[in-house]
Each structure stands twice: as C-alpha cells, then as structure tokens.
Design a protein around this nucleic acid. Structure first.
Lengths: 337, 337
DNA sequence: CTGTTAGCGCGTTCAA
DNA sequence: TTGAACGCGCTAACAG
C-alpha cells in the first residue's frame, strides 16, 4: 500500500506538495500537479484515512442509536441518514440499543474515544442529565424522540397535532366511544399522543374513560397490541374505535377484533400510526398517520452535519409534515352505520 | 481531553507504562497500576481511538453492504452482525447499495482507504473478477448470496434443498400445476430456487411449464408479486399453487388471488420464503421456508473476524438450517380438496 | 518492572 | 510555487 511519501518520491516532489494537491490548499503548478497525479495513478495510491483522520482529529463517522434496527420505522430513518451522510463523505455506525441504558452509554462513549464525530439518537432511556452532559461536549441531534426540556436540536413531526387530526376524524365519523392503545414507554411521542387523545375527547365534550386507555409493551409488539385490544373490546360498553400509536399495534388490534368475531371497520374502527410499508399488503389496509421517516432521517443528518462543521444549527427544532391516510380500517360506528 | 502523556505525568510514570497497562502487555506492579488508574480516573482519560487505530493500523470497523436496509430480511441479518461485532469491540458501517455497482465499489474502496478492516456482502452486482480482486487483498465474507465459482467464505442456507422440500410438500398435498414467482436478479439464491423448482417437478414426473414461471422485480416488490400472480392465475389451466421466492411476493400473490375471487388456500395455495415477521400479522398466515436471518448475520460476522484476526477461517462455507413452516396459506388443490 | 525513543502517515507551519 | 521539518497520540522495541 503506497504512502504519500512514495507518491512524492515517484513524482519528485515533497510530501507537502502532494498533500496540498489532495486537499486543494495552497497552490500547485499545473505541471507538478500532473506529475503527482500520474504518480498517484501509477502507484494506485489511496490516502490512509487512519492517518488523515488522526491528523485532522476527526473520524468522519457518525453514531446512530436506534432501539431496534429491525423495526421498519427505524430502518427507514436509518436509510435517510445513511444517504444524507454518504453525500458528504460521512459513514454511519449503527448501534442497536434496545433502549438499554448501558448500551446507549457504551455507544456514546465512542464520542469520547473519538470514534465518531457526532450522534443521532432515535430514542433515549438515559436520564436527561446524563444525556445533556454528552450533548454539551459533542454534536448530538435527536430524531423522532427528544427530551421535552433538554435543549438538544431535534427533528420530528408534530405528534400532538397529528393525533388531534386523527381523533377529530374519528369523531367526525360519529365515534364517541374511542379507545387508545398507548405504550409503556417514556417516549415524548407516546406522551403527546396520549395527551392529544385525551384533550381532543374533552374538547368535543366526550369524557375520558380510563377503561378505554390501554398500554402495550414498550416496543409496540404485535402480540401486546392484540392482547390489549382484546381487553378493550371486552369493556362494556365496548369502544367502537381504537386509536393505536403504531401500525403494528393496529395490526394486532385488527387481529384481536377479528378473532372476537368483530368486522373491521363495520363493527370496530382501528387506526394506526407511522404508515410502515407492510400495512398495505393485506386487507384491511390500515388507516394511519403517515410520518416522513426517510426525510426525518435526512434532516436529522443535515442538522448534525451543520453542528459538526459549523458548530451551529439553522434551527433547533425541525417539524416535518405528517399526513392522515384514510384507507380501509376506519368507518362510521355500527350504531350509525 | 486528556492524553496518555497527561496520565503518565499525573501518575509519575512513563507513557509506556500507561500503554502497557491499558493493553495488558508486559507487566506492571500493582502499586504503579493503582497510581495510573487513579490518574485515569482523575483526568477522565479515554484513549484516543483515532491515534490508537492509526498506530495499530486497524480500524476496528467492518463494512456491511446490503442492497436495502429497509427490507426486514436484511435488517435482521444486520442486527445479528451488529451484535456479534459489539461483543468483540467492532463497529459496523452500513452501506445501502441498492444493488448498484458503483455504490458497492465506493463502499469497498473504504477498505483500501483503511476505514474498515473487512466487509460482509449481503449481495453483489459487481462482476466476480472485480469482487475477487478485493477479496484477495482484504477480508471479505458473503452472507446469503455468494458467487458460485468465486472462492470467498460465505454463510447461507441450502437454497436448493429448502426449495426441494417446499416443492415436495406441495406435491404431497396433491398439487400438480405448480407455478413459481422468481425474480429478475442474478442472486445465487434465486437461481438455486428456480433450479430446485424445475428439478423437483421433473423428478416427480411433472413437466415444467414455462407459462408457470414468472419473474418479479429484482427487489421482490409486493407490487410486482401481485402483478405476476395475476398473470399466472390467468393461465389455462390455472395453477393450483404458487411457490414464491420471498414472503413479500407471496403476500402480493395472495392479494392478487383474492382480488380475482380466489380463496387462499381453498382455491389456490401460496407459499413464501424467508419468514419475515409481518407475515403472521394478518390472515392468512403464510406457509413459508424460514431462514435463520439473525444467526446468518452472527455467523457471517464470526467468519469475518476469524479472517481479520487469524487470517483464516474454520470453514469456507457455513450452511445453516432452514425450516418449512406450514401455516394457513397452503392446502390441497381444489380438485382433491 | 519501568523508561526512553522511534516512528506510524498525514497536514501544516515556516523558509526559501 | 515548493520543500524541510515538526507533531498529532499511541504502541512497541529496546535498554536499563
């Protein structure tokens, strides 16, 4: 593997000249430049990033902390970040944290060790204090989830408004007994969606019924969605609609409803959240709130690069547009249908 | 950010001693060790990986080339690789290649630039010559797909045998008019599955009917599966079973069948491949050939680390067990049912 | 058991 | 426009 010194020798110039040429710094005469390029070609020289990064004290790598790469919601965000990074010569290091504090910490330690120049957190189970400590010292951006009171740049959708729209839609359809499947996690999105669920009911003069609020597992598993839906549909009087905070939960709810002999949407309406791809693979296609996952990832990456390169961000929070997509799993309640 | 020299000064030892201690090389007396650890603690010292890797001439990073991170099949493999890497202090750099030659090449260039110590290819559209050139110079392992004649270590399932079993199962059910949805790609898995499809028919004295062989898009899209199934089900006499080389295609086939008024499995049997999670989220649950994706990833990683660290592998190819999972989308053909 | 020292390959002064 | 020389932080001889 040829080094810069080899190239310099071959081109009969100094390493400084080669370096200048490669980095477009200073000026190099066309003739010498040609000689150097010829030498690079001849020796098949590739700059050693290990050395370059060491010298420049940067890694050109960013950390991606995701609770679960396997989840299509997150994998689409990862794709967006990956593409945005590739455009500016950054690579992405993926850490599957499983929302485990220790794994998150271990990943962030890579910042101290200089393995990465910054990080994008897709979620965080660390306490805010800890997180803030890192955020003060290193470029960090949050994507989808964020600390409500910590001042870390983030990109997300407006979860409150999105839920409000979904709820208004259900109410407009005539639903009054609307249940929700939330989740046992501390995500800001979870909290905002639950808040909006309650607030929108109240705003429409519908009392919030605790029996209509269920909590699925923290990772929104299909199984827990199904189990919670089964319970909700056993409440008397039974809800005519279920607002689920993820598509997977909605799928679980639909399955539970069917197993209990209810038709969707004739007997019970189910709506989801996220719009992951496989929800339009088998009927009923799910009515859901779509998030621009890929774009969420892209923008988070751009925010991060802005911090890394200019030590500043154009805006501390970016809110992207959501979209309510009405498909087959929703309709008027049976009493009015 | 404290350096090793700072620690050495604080502990009143030389940098060599600190280095030795940190790398468990040579011997250090308990007393000095204690002093050094105290200094490390006091200064909150973290080794600079940029410097360490440079010095050791290794990056402790591996490249993951996947055609599509968003595909659950690949994301589960990625999870396996990621976990196996984390256990031995390796991080994974993910490149979404989209089966694009140039992106694959760009990713592999990272090997020359020493950004990574090795690579795992989940697929490859490069010609074998090119690929082999890299494989000769750098640690490379293939996962799931591999060049049939290039001698690169790889891990996969036995695609031929797996398909054979699936076909024998269909034939045992009584099916004679069995179609297949293959794909327009050059993957070895695609080829082997098609070969096994044909061979198993012939072995059972069933003529191979070209009209029963369809090719979906190279990325196994749901849409193309649906379109191809629609065509297959229009052939006279129509097939009573469709063997799809991916679950997504199978989902598409089921949708097409339903839209054409056929019941699955009463009128037509559909079976898939891979056993990705969401195939048991809505009925009919798909009969499929399960691949141990996570384990595929783990073993690929272990193979790669073996090459990186010892420059040798225990075995050049690892074949993992598949499993035919019979669920709801398969049954006897209508004539006999 | 410990310290001194010489690079690893590159980017960057500073002089020429 | 070019070159000589230094040093980033660390590891590994080698010497003591």
């Amino acid at each position: 593997m040829a080094t810069m010194a080899d190239v310099a020798r071959e081109a009969k110039v100094s390493v400084a000249t080669v370096s200048r040429l490669l980095n477009n710094k200073g000026t190099v005469s066309p003739e010498t430049a040609a000689r150097v390029f010829a030498a690079i070609e001849k020796l098949d020289y590739e700059p050693n990033l290990l050395a370059r990064n060491f010298r420049r004290n940067e890694s050109r790598v960013i950390l991606l902390l995701s609770p679960n790469v396997t989840n299509p919601y997150y994998s689409r965000i990862l794709a967006g970040i990956g593409d945005a990074g590739a455009e500016v010569g950054y690579s992405a290091l993926i850490y599957n944290t499983g929302d485990d504090r220790e794994r998150e910490r271990a990943a962030l330690e890579m910042l101290k060790k200089r393995r990465a120049d910054g990080a994008i957190l897709m979620s965080s189970s660390m306490d805010c204090g800890w997180l803030l400590e890192y955020a003060e010292r290193f470029p960090i951006v949050q994507c989808s989830e964020y600390g409500p009171d910590v001042d870390i740049p983030h990109v997300s959708i407006d979860n409150y408004k999105a839920t409000q729209e979904a709820m208004e839609y259900l109410i407009a359809l005539g639903h009054r007994r609307i249940a929700t499947i939330s989740a046992e996690n501390e995500y800001i999105s979870t909290r905002l969606r639950l808040d909006a669920y309650c607030d929108t009911l109240v705003k429409n003069d519908i009392a919030v019924n605790e029996a209509y609020i269920a909590y699925a597992s923290r990772d929104y598993s299909f199984k827990s969605g199904k189990a919670r839906a089964r319970e909700l549909l056993s409440v008397t009087p039974r809800p005519t609609a279920i607002f689920c905070i993820s598509d997977t939960l909605a799928l679980g709810a639909i399955t539970a409803a069917k197993e209990m002999g209810y038709r969707v949407p004739e007997d019970v309406t189910v709506i989801g959240f996220d719009d992951v791809e496989h929800t339009t693979m088998l009927h009923p296609y799910i009515t859901t709130v779509a998030q621009p996952c890929y774009e969420l990832g892209r923008q988070a990456a751009q925010l991060l690069f802005s911090v890394i390169m200019h030590n500043t961000v154009p805006q501390r929070q970016v809110i992207l547009e959501h979209r309510l997509i009405v498909r087959e799993s929703s309709g008027p309640p049976p009493e009015l249908g």
